[in-house]
Design a protein around this nucleic acid. Structure first.
Lengths: 180, 180
DNA sequence: CTTACATATGCAATTTCTTGCACAGACAAT
DNA sequence: ATTGTCTGTGCAAGAAATTGCATATGTAAG
């Protein structure tokens, strides 16, 4: 029930439509957790059925109708209970590692190119995160509790991308060097 | 089709039963990618149906029968094709980050305790990986291609755990300090 | 003697996630 | 005019993953 809880958390800030939620995901956790709009709509239906959120249709002139969801008291209670439960470390299914397990002379060049591609991709991500950090979180110690959570998410993103970059460099050097 | 390909890669080394594969997973990629034996058996059935692996039942006295799978030529070809395809960065669904997004004065102590728990858990993982590294990979540059892949997997594990530890320390300091 | 653990495979049900498709209007640019 | 992008919600099908249960034997420890 991970995505549904992420939705609940987002709704603690304000009532939102599926579209709002999808956009917000894209700009925050979506960096390292891509979520499609279909999944969000599906989860919202489930949450509504479980009475954890309340749906309200808003009709606007010259606009598609929006369905805005807000937390209910049972939803708030469920969220509070979930937050205090122990977590499990995320699984880390890195395709590239599996491919490197199959490294041989036939695929070496292709894998080297792929590592290089991934390296630049993670470089771009890092630059994006650091720009957000510089703009919105110049002084983390001065943040209130709610914003500290967001800061730590971004911080994790930055650390992870730096680590990935460093690993790519090592991998390029090792795979690229002659075998002994 | 990620797990199925991981199984194929493992079978390039030698023919194995579902049980063998599960055990091997546990000791390698399973550190950051937990796979249940049910999933492996299910995938093996699919792979056999697709003729990517060949099943052979081995009857032993006083033992449950084993079903050993080996790669077929089409399986080998499919694997080779897959290895050269581009990869996508893994998604990173860290529950703890979602919970920290909901950080407030009511759950602060529980979250601090949880971060501390996770910190020690990742410390244990790191120690385990570093022990394996010291024992099996004292000199990475001297490894052949196949072992370089494995080394890089382990190396990624070490870097990731170190990063996670550093993040936990930051999180403990920030969440633990007084809000301004 | 009983409990626990290792070997060995599997079904069934459910949940979760992904992919493809469909509808429908507004606004800006070419 | 047409193309593209943004707003906005959804179904349907399938793939992937999780959870719970079931079976069967050997060996070691308490």
């Amino acid at each position: 029930m991970a995505l549904s809880h992420a939705i609940l958390v987002s709704l603690t800030d304000r009532a939102q439509s599926g579209y709002d939620l999808a956009k917000r995901f894209d700009q925050t956790v979506g960096f390292f957790w891509p979520v499609s709009h279909q999944q969000i709509y599906q989860e919202l239906h489930k949450l509504a059925k479980a009475d954890w959120v309340r749906a309200e249709t808003i009709t606007q002139a010259d606009r598609p109708n929006r369905i805005v969801y807000e937390l209910t008291d049972p939803g708030r209670a469920a969220l509070a209970a979930w937050v205090t439960e122990p977590t499990t470390p995320p699984s880390f299914k890195e395709e590239l590692l599996v491919k490197l397990f199959a490294l041989d002379s036939d695929n070496r060049d292709a894998l080297l190119a792929e590592i290089a591609r991934r390296r630049s991709l993670h470089g771009e991500r890092l630059a994006r995160y650091e720009a957000i950090m510089a703009e919105h979180y110049p002084n983390p110690a001065a943040l209130n509790a709610r914003k500290r959570g967001r800061y730590l998410g971004l911080r994790m993103g930055i650390l992870t991308e730096r680590t990935t970059l460093a690993w790519c460099d090592e991998a390029l050097a090792l795979v690229g060097s002659a075998a002994s």
